[in-house]
Protein backbone atom coordinates (compact mmCIF):
# COMPACT_ATOMS: atom_id res chain seq x y z
CA UNK A 1 0.00 0.00 0.00
CA UNK A 2 1.47 3.38 -1.00
CA UNK A 3 0.71 4.84 2.45
CA UNK A 4 0.19 2.80 5.61
CA UNK A 5 -3.39 1.94 6.54
CA UNK A 6 -3.52 4.29 9.53
CA UNK A 7 -2.56 7.39 7.56
CA UNK A 8 -4.64 6.31 4.54
CA UNK A 9 -7.73 5.49 6.60
CA UNK A 10 -7.51 8.76 8.52
CA UNK A 11 -7.17 10.80 5.29
CA UNK A 12 -10.03 8.90 3.64
CA UNK A 13 -12.24 9.49 6.70
CA UNK A 14 -11.36 13.20 6.69
CA UNK A 15 -12.37 13.53 3.02
CA UNK A 16 -15.75 11.88 3.71
CA UNK A 17 -16.23 14.12 6.77
CA UNK A 18 -15.30 17.37 4.99
CA UNK A 19 -17.64 16.47 2.10
CA UNK A 20 -20.59 16.15 4.52
CA UNK A 21 -19.51 19.23 6.45
CA UNK A 22 -19.37 21.48 3.38
CA UNK A 23 -21.80 19.90 0.89
CA UNK A 24 -23.24 16.39 1.14
CA UNK A 25 -22.16 12.75 1.40
CA UNK A 26 -19.94 11.39 -1.39
CA UNK A 27 -21.45 9.13 -4.08
CA UNK A 28 -20.28 8.10 -7.53
CA UNK A 29 -22.38 5.50 -9.34
CA UNK A 30 -25.28 7.84 -10.23
CA UNK A 31 -22.88 9.71 -12.51
CA UNK A 32 -22.62 6.68 -14.81
CA UNK A 33 -26.38 7.15 -15.37
CA UNK A 34 -25.91 10.88 -15.91
CA UNK A 35 -23.16 10.29 -18.51
CA UNK A 36 -25.38 7.69 -20.23
CA UNK A 37 -28.15 10.29 -20.27
CA UNK A 38 -25.84 12.96 -21.70
CA UNK A 39 -24.71 10.57 -24.47
CA UNK A 40 -28.30 9.44 -25.14
CA UNK A 41 -29.60 12.99 -25.21
CA UNK A 42 -26.85 14.04 -27.62
CA UNK A 43 -27.90 11.26 -30.00
CA UNK A 44 -31.62 11.84 -29.51
CA UNK A 45 -32.54 15.24 -27.96
CA UNK A 46 -36.08 14.00 -27.28
CA UNK A 47 -34.82 11.92 -24.33
CA UNK A 48 -34.55 14.83 -21.87
CA UNK A 49 -36.92 17.77 -22.19
CA UNK A 50 -37.64 20.91 -20.19
CA UNK A 51 -41.00 21.22 -18.44
CA UNK A 52 -42.55 24.28 -16.84
CA UNK A 53 -40.53 24.10 -13.63
CA UNK A 54 -37.89 21.51 -14.33
CA UNK A 55 -36.90 18.59 -16.53
CA UNK A 56 -38.33 15.22 -17.46
CA UNK A 57 -37.38 12.31 -19.67
CA UNK A 58 -38.87 9.65 -21.90
CA UNK A 59 -36.78 7.24 -19.80
CA UNK A 60 -38.67 6.39 -16.60
CA UNK A 61 -35.46 6.15 -14.55
CA UNK A 62 -34.24 9.62 -15.55
CA UNK A 63 -37.74 11.02 -14.96
CA UNK A 64 -38.16 9.56 -11.44
CA UNK A 65 -38.07 11.68 -8.26
CA UNK A 66 -39.35 14.78 -10.04
CA UNK A 67 -36.81 14.52 -12.86
CA UNK A 68 -33.71 15.17 -10.73
CA UNK A 69 -31.54 12.93 -12.93
CA UNK A 70 -33.00 14.53 -16.10
CA UNK A 71 -32.04 17.91 -14.65
CA UNK A 72 -28.43 16.79 -14.11
CA UNK A 73 -28.29 15.41 -17.66
CA UNK A 74 -29.46 18.79 -18.96
CA UNK A 75 -26.88 20.60 -16.77
CA UNK A 76 -23.70 18.48 -16.71
CA UNK A 77 -21.79 21.24 -14.95
CA UNK A 78 -23.35 20.27 -11.60
CA UNK A 79 -21.60 19.43 -8.31
CA UNK A 80 -21.88 15.62 -8.44
CA UNK A 81 -20.79 15.22 -12.06
CA UNK A 82 -17.85 17.62 -11.76
CA UNK A 83 -16.89 15.82 -8.52
CA UNK A 84 -16.33 12.56 -10.44
CA UNK A 85 -14.36 14.33 -13.19
CA UNK A 86 -12.22 15.90 -10.47
CA UNK A 87 -11.64 12.46 -8.90
CA UNK A 88 -9.95 11.46 -12.14
CA UNK A 89 -7.79 14.58 -12.05
CA UNK A 90 -6.81 13.97 -8.40
CA UNK A 91 -6.08 10.29 -9.02
CA UNK A 92 -3.99 11.13 -12.08
CA UNK A 93 -1.93 13.77 -10.25
CA UNK A 94 -1.42 11.48 -7.25
CA UNK A 95 -0.21 8.55 -9.33
CA UNK A 96 2.08 10.79 -11.40
CA UNK A 97 3.51 12.38 -8.24
CA UNK A 98 4.65 8.92 -7.10
CA UNK A 99 6.22 8.14 -10.45
CA UNK A 100 3.27 6.57 -12.33
CA UNK A 101 2.53 2.88 -12.92
CA UNK A 102 4.88 0.71 -14.98
CA UNK A 103 3.67 -0.53 -18.35
CA UNK A 104 3.22 -4.15 -17.17
CA UNK A 105 0.90 -3.06 -14.37
CA UNK A 106 -0.97 -0.66 -16.67
CA UNK A 107 -1.61 -3.58 -19.02
CA UNK A 108 -3.09 -5.76 -16.24
CA UNK A 109 -2.78 -6.18 -12.45
CA UNK A 110 0.05 -8.41 -11.14
CA UNK A 111 -2.32 -10.60 -9.13
CA UNK A 112 -4.50 -11.22 -12.18
CA UNK A 113 -1.45 -12.18 -14.26
CA UNK A 114 -0.25 -14.62 -11.59
CA UNK A 115 -3.61 -16.39 -11.58
CA UNK A 116 -4.83 -16.17 -15.19
CA UNK A 117 -1.78 -15.52 -17.37
CA UNK A 118 -0.89 -12.65 -19.64
CA UNK A 119 -3.83 -12.68 -22.06
CA UNK A 120 -5.05 -9.08 -22.30
CA UNK A 121 -8.26 -10.14 -24.08
CA UNK A 122 -9.23 -12.38 -21.14
CA UNK A 123 -8.51 -9.65 -18.59
CA UNK A 124 -10.33 -6.93 -20.52
CA UNK A 125 -13.36 -9.17 -21.13
CA UNK A 126 -13.68 -9.85 -17.39
CA UNK A 127 -13.15 -6.17 -16.57
CA UNK A 128 -15.90 -5.23 -19.04
CA UNK A 129 -18.35 -7.85 -17.73
CA UNK A 130 -17.42 -6.92 -14.16
CA UNK A 131 -18.13 -3.28 -14.92
CA UNK A 132 -21.53 -4.20 -16.35
CA UNK A 133 -22.52 -6.23 -13.27
CA UNK A 134 -21.09 -3.66 -10.82
CA UNK A 135 -23.01 -0.72 -12.27
CA UNK A 136 -26.20 -2.71 -12.86
CA UNK A 137 -26.02 -3.83 -9.23
CA UNK A 138 -25.13 -0.37 -7.94
CA UNK A 139 -28.14 1.20 -9.67
CA UNK A 140 -30.43 -1.58 -8.43
CA UNK A 141 -29.10 -0.99 -4.91
CA UNK A 142 -29.30 2.79 -5.29
CA UNK A 143 -25.61 3.39 -4.57
CA UNK A 144 -22.14 1.88 -4.57
CA UNK A 145 -19.16 1.40 -2.31
CA UNK A 146 -18.76 5.12 -1.69
CA UNK A 147 -22.41 6.18 -1.47
CA UNK A 148 -23.92 3.16 0.29
CA UNK A 149 -21.05 1.54 2.15
CA UNK A 150 -18.78 4.43 3.18
CA UNK A 151 -21.19 7.39 3.33
CA UNK A 152 -24.11 5.19 4.39
CA UNK A 153 -22.47 3.32 7.26
CA UNK A 154 -20.80 6.54 8.39
CA UNK A 155 -24.28 8.06 8.77
CA UNK A 156 -25.58 4.91 10.53
CA UNK A 157 -27.96 4.33 7.59
CA UNK A 158 -29.67 0.92 7.72
CA UNK A 159 -29.42 0.72 3.90
CA UNK A 160 -25.63 1.06 4.10
CA UNK A 161 -25.38 -2.01 6.36
CA UNK A 162 -27.71 -4.04 4.10
CA UNK A 163 -25.64 -3.08 1.07
CA UNK A 164 -22.31 -3.90 2.73
CA UNK A 165 -23.66 -7.30 3.84
CA UNK A 166 -24.66 -8.12 0.26
CA UNK A 167 -21.48 -6.80 -1.30
CA UNK A 168 -19.08 -8.75 0.95
CA UNK A 169 -21.27 -11.89 0.94
CA UNK A 170 -20.57 -12.11 -2.80
CA UNK A 171 -17.16 -10.43 -3.08
CA UNK A 172 -15.25 -12.58 -0.57
CA UNK A 173 -16.21 -16.02 -1.99
CA UNK A 174 -15.73 -14.86 -5.59
CA UNK A 175 -12.31 -13.44 -4.78
CA UNK A 176 -11.21 -16.53 -2.82
CA UNK A 177 -12.29 -18.80 -5.68
CA UNK A 178 -10.72 -16.67 -8.41
CA UNK A 179 -7.46 -15.55 -6.82
CA UNK A 180 -5.90 -18.65 -5.25
CA UNK A 181 -2.28 -17.75 -5.99
CA UNK A 182 -0.75 -14.89 -4.03
CA UNK A 183 1.24 -12.28 -5.88
Amino acid sequence: MPVNWKVGGLLLGLVFFVAVLLVKPIGVSTQFVILDGIIGDAVNPEIVTQTGDGFTSTNAYLAKSGGKYAKSVANPLNYSFVFVLAMMLGGFLSVMARGGLDSRERRMPTLWRANFGDSAVKRYAVAFLGGFVVLYGARLAGGCTSGHMMSGMMQTALSGYIFAAGAFAAAIPVSILMFRKEA
Binding site: L129, G130, G131, F132, V133, V134, Y136, G137, A138, R139, L140, A141, G142, C144, T145, H148, I162, F163, A164, A165, G166, A167, F168, A169, A170, A171, I172, V174
Partner: peptide, 8 residues
Protein backbone atom coordinates in the same frame (compact mmCIF):
# COMPACT_ATOMS: atom_id res chain seq x y z
CA UNK B 1 -27.74 -5.10 -5.97
CA UNK B 2 -25.05 -5.37 -3.29
CA UNK B 3 -24.52 -9.05 -4.18
CA UNK B 4 -24.16 -8.16 -7.86
CA UNK B 5 -21.78 -5.30 -7.15
CA UNK B 6 -19.74 -7.53 -4.85
CA UNK B 7 -19.33 -10.27 -7.46
CA UNK B 8 -18.28 -7.78 -10.14
Amino acid sequence: GGLMLGAG
